[in-house]
Design a protein around this nucleic acid. Sequence first.
DNA 1: CCCTGATTCGC
DNA 2: GCGAATCAGG
Length: 172
Amino acid sequence: MNWTDERVELLRKLWSEGLSASQIAAQLGGVSRNAVIGKVHRLKLSGRGRSTAAPARQKKAAQGSTVQKSVSRAATAARHVTTSIGATALQTQFDAEPVARHYIRPVENVVLPISRHLQLVELTERTCKWPNGDPLSEDFHFCGNEAAETGPYCKYHARVAFQPASERRRSR
DNA sequence: CCCTGATTCGC
DNA sequence: GCGAATCAGG
């Protein structure tokens, strides 16, 4: 995969929206998160809302290795990303969602890969059972992407459902 | 162990 | 320019 203008543009967009490198990589497809990070740096797009601020590293010069530790914590502006998930299900008696009965507030931004439009009957043990939309509506469907062996959701919805990433610390 | 971004460096 | 390997950290 090469970095076409369109792909770079999408990268810029998603990065500015606060998505993680791995998430962006998943969206772009055909690239690793390292590739995304590398590209971000080349584009000089680093420094975003938060995450791992640059502690001014200096390693790996050449096998020699000079272990040097410098800690500098720079506080940056808070980032606000508002992404609503299919929490509309709350309104109904529908209660098959751990997330739904959670608290809707802090949900982090998560972008699902593709989201197939699957109907209930089309779900199998291997399909993500994350619901999208209002169950009472006709456009209600399930994510349907490959679910992890450890749960009913795909990798991405799993992190929405359980422990919203390691960034939620500043959520509330 | 999962994840995050940052940096280096061979290609 | 690219990105895997590596590093540092949560």
